[in-house]
Amino acid sequence: MAEKNISSTKLEEVEQGCVLYNLDPIIMKYHYEVDYIHSYAQDSPFFAGLAKGELKGSRCTKCGSTFGTPRSHCMNCGAPTEWMDLPLNGKIHTFTTCYFGGQEFLDETPFTLIMVEWPGVDTFFLSRLVGVAPEDVQIGMEVKARFRRLSQFKPTDVYFVKADV
């Protein structure tokens, strides 16, 4: 690195810039992104479970409410919950096929989103349905969980397919 000349009276010129679209008003485009350190904290066992082929929900230790998603405390009474294994087979409560999406997912379209329901579990689970043509998806269809072999520690480590495949 060159030594800084602190007595220089000239601000150094740089060869960096942006895309300039327009001068009046001045409109420009530049890129920005960050590295972000994220912790799943108390929800970590859910993601660890996906890596082992387990789907974990929550059960309230006080009122017995059951949840299809991780919640360390009960949304009905506030008491701590314990982990419970969710059945790997469930039914489609509702669904959609997305032909567009946020930029991050555009190249994955079309993809089908489903809410999974289980008897005896009070709430649902959001996931993707794979291997079923959009026109063949139906509310009430039986589906089963599958897991990615190479975990990414994301909720997409689990996805669903038709129960009879």
């Binding site: 998603t69 997305c98 989103l113 809410m115």
Partner: peptide, 18 residues
């Protein structure tokens, strides 16, 4: 839990109206 699965509000509303 929601965004990484296909984060798209129209998708969420589509599931509700279905």
């Amino acid at each position: 839990f929601d965004y990484p699965v296909g984060g798209f509000y129209t998708g969420y509303y589509a599931m509700m109206v279905k």
